[in-house]
Design a protein around this nucleic acid. Structure first.
Length: 690
RNA sequence: GCCCGGAUGGCGAAAUGGUAGACGCACGAGACUUAAAAUCUUGUUUCCGUAAGGAAGUGUGGGUUCGAGUCCCACUCCGGGCACCA
């Protein structure tokens, strides 16, 4: 079993083994039933716009219409197409059906049978990737059949082409080459007619294919209408005749939820013969779906019977080997004793089928499902299980689910934008509908951290040999240094190259702070005094600035600037002869989330207990942040020509007088006309002279 | 092809439309040392200048503004996502 990208030229990327496509019995989860809600509820979450857009594109909602085209010469049979452009119906010059469309056999004219069969065979041999990758050259074959355009009775040839996908819409389209790039390319290639039915609204020039909005032309009674209006009218008119209706389509497909490998949660399903199922169903009233999932093999139909709740969870059997089964089924297919069983419908108990049938009416012959679940089966709800990991009766207790709620902030890589983050939303909504969780969305606020690249600026990988192991850094510098450096490198969301020398900087910073707190003898640094007013005015002000900046930085996830502010603070402490104990303790607290081990040790050595983690977060005093002097910048014609420390809230007249008297500014304005003065208090004085 | 994001010293980066380069790395000079490491002091965008000072400068070209790394338009390059979805 390989993923698409593991197949190269029909062979496995590793080993070069031939690869074939095979239909397997698999399970899918009906995520499509939630498509509209998954789309609409994106409005309510605080996520990066780019991620929301990716999910929107993935869900791919598009509004349009399903229209029925009568088939020529076959009474009553119709070809249903989906289009987002019913307004261009008069421009339809041919139809296209996907090669896999079930009606292809029905409509193909005898003379075209051979050509169509050959084309279908060729298309089937292509992988999905080939069908999309080779998009440049469109190919197709005429079926020999015609459809009738419902608005004007025109005879329209039906082609078979693999640029139309069976998995989307109805698997058939009406082609309007004048107003669709793909249809245009195909029509030119096969010399099919092209009829323009939309003209630019502003009367401007029109180059086909013309896909922008405009007004209808060559469209009978609809000519002259604006296209949006025409969409509504044509759809409504066809609906009135019973041959069309407005619909919505999604790109989102149902979610293939089974894997053919050993590791993975086994499906709690037992397959029983269709003949036995009614007896089973009678014992499990209210516990089974109205219609069982079924499949047929060797002429026998089997019905899916879920294990009773008391028998959950189903665990994997102990095996000697979990190598592939050889048949395409999972390795579980070889665990005969686990697989082929007498199954107790009421209790879920099982006995190997090699044993005699146990006594009692509840026992039925069954075969377990051999597919296993993908990794998503766990990643979709782990954040709920963390709340109550040992709960044996449910995901987590309702009280804990209510108390803790969902994660306040979810940090994860952008590579999860459409898979994990969409699947987990889907599960959460299903759980919400089932009354298990009290919220509709799992991750209210999302943030994508960047990845750390190798020293060479490339993604770390073993093959490139640029991998840096955190264990090595922890061994040489400690985990506090590593943690601090990762945060100091740059903005959290950016990807950044690893710099082995850069880590020395933050390591030195931590050592310097340690020395400020603890002397070489291991006792508190004698410069730390208990006198509350020991700090200079500047140091006090800097402390309050630092408390504010670090707190704001944490809230905004700007750790790099928070750390640089702490460096500025510690540099200032180092230059001071005395520092008050409360100031040192405050800085320890600020550092604690960044370098928890070091902070905890210093906290204790400076005589504090209990843990620094339990101390309330420091508050800054707004009054301590205000300054009485500010640096006013003088500009002449927008150029910096000097600056001066001035009292706050200086008047413009005073500022102007200072500028005129300033020896650096004066030469630039002397003897010139002062045309304009721009004064931004406490910041800048710009003199425009001519 | 379409949709995002990014580009600032030798390097990682900082900067509510108001002194571009904070903080750190690297490098230079000095102090301490027999010496080295560590530590401390100091300098470091580029060009001209001994200096004072001047000029240029945030990927490129235009624009708005007294003033643009920041806002607007066009483009180049790099990265990511999607890719025949009718």
């Amino acid at each position: 079993m390989l993923a698409n990208e593991e197949v190269v030229d029909g062979r496995s990327e590793v080993g070069g083994f031939p690869v074939e496509r095979r239909n397997l019995r698999q399970w899918v989860l009906r995520i499509t039933a939630y498509a509209d809600r998954l789309l609409a509820d994106l409005r309510d979450v605080d996520w990066p716009d780019s991620t929301k857009r990716m999910q929107e594109a993935w869900i791919g909602r598009s509004e349009g219409a399903e229209l029925d085209f009568a088939l020529e010469g076959s009474q009553g049979a119709t070809l249903k197409v989906f289009t987002t452009r019913p307004d261009t119906l008069y421009g339809c010059t041919y139809m296209v059906m996907a090669p896999e469309h079930p009606l292809v056999d029905v409509i193909t004219a005898p003379a075209q049978r051979e050509a169509v069969a050959a084309y279908r065979k060729k298309a089937a041999a292509k992988s999905d990737l080939e069908r999309t990758d080779l998009a440049k050259d469109k190919s197709g074959v005429f079926s020999g059949a015609y459809a009738i355009n419902p608005v004007n009775g025109a005879r329209v040839p039906i082609w078979i082409a693999d640029y139309v996908l069976m998995g989307y819409g109805t698997g058939a389209i009406m082609a309007v080459p004048a107003h669709d790039e793909r249809d245009y390319e195909f029509a030119v290639h096969y010399s099919l007619p092209i009829i323009q039915v939309i003209a630019p609204g502003n009367g401007g020039e029109c180059v086909l294919p013309f896909v922008d909005d405009g007004n209808l032309v060559n469209s009978g009674p609809y000519s002259g209408l604006e296209w949006a209006e025409a969409k509504k009218r044509i759809t409504a008119d066809l609906a009135g005749r019973g041959i069309g209706k407005a619909t919505v389509n999604f790109k989102l497909r149902d979610w293939l939820f089974s894997r053919q490998r050993y590791w993975g949660e086994p499906f709690p399903i037992v397959w029983v013969n269709e003949r036995d199922y009614p007896l089973v169903a009678a014992r499990r009233v209210g516990d089974l779906p109205p219609n069982p999932v079924t499949y047929s093999q060797d002429g026998v139909r089997y019905c899916a019977l879920p294990l009773p709740a008391v028998a959950l969870p189903l665990t994997l059997p102990e095996v000697e080997s979990y190598l592939p089964s050889g048949t395409g089924e999972s390795p579980l297919a070889n665990c005969t004793d686990w697989l082929e069983i007498w199954f107790n419908v009421d209790t879920g108990a099982a006995v190997s089928a090699s044993q005699p049938r146990p006594a009692g009416d509840a026992w039925v012959r069954g075969r377990r499902e051999t597919n296993t679940m993908p990794q998503w089966a766990g990643s979709c709800w782990y954040y709920l299980r963390y709340l109550d990991p040992h709960n044996g009766s449910g995901i987590a207790s309702p009280e804990l689910l209510r108390y803790w709620g969902t994660p306040d902030l979810y940090v994860g890589g952008a590579e999860h934008a459409v898979l994990h983050l969409l699947y987990a939303r889907f599960w959460h909504k299903v759980l919400f509908d089932a009354g298990v969780v009290p919220q509709n969305e799992p991750f209210k606020k999302l943030f994508h951290q960047g990845i750390i690249l190798g020293e060479d600026g490339e993604k770390m990988s073993k093959s490139r040999g640029n991998v840096v192991s955190p264990d090595t850094i922890i061994a040489s510098h400690g985990s506090d240094t590593l943690r601090l450096y990762l945060m100091f490198l740059g903005p959290l969301e950016d990807k950044k190259p690893w710099n082995p020398r850069g880590i020395e900087g933050v390591h030195r910073f931590l050592q310097k702070f340690w020395r400020e707190c603890i002397s070489a003898e291991g006792t508190p640094n004698p410069k730390i005094v208990d006198q509350a007013d020991a700090d200079s005015a500047e140091l006090t002000k800097l402390l309050h600035e630092t408390v504010k900046k670090v707190g704001d930085g944490i809230e905004a996830l700007r750790f790099n600037t928070a750390i640089s502010q702490m460096m500025i603070m510690v540099n200032a402490m180092q230059k001071s002869d005395r520092v008050s104990r409360t100031t040192v303790l405050t800085v320890i607290q600020l550092l604690a989330p960044f370098a928890p081990h070091l902070a905890e040790e210093l906290w204790e050595r400076l005589g504090r207990a209990p843990s620094v983690l339990q101390a309330p977060w420091p508050q800054y005093d707004e009054a301590k942040l205000v300054r009485d002097q500010v640096k006013l910048v003088f500009q002449v014609n927008g150029k910096h020509r000097g600056d001066q420390s001035v009292p706050v809230n200086l008047s413009q007249e005073d500022a102007l007088a200072l500028a005129r008297a300033n020896e650096k500014v004066a030469p630039h304005i002397d003897g010139k006309d002062l045309k304009r003065v721009i004064y931004v208090q406490n910041k800048i004085l710009n003199l425009v002279v001519g």
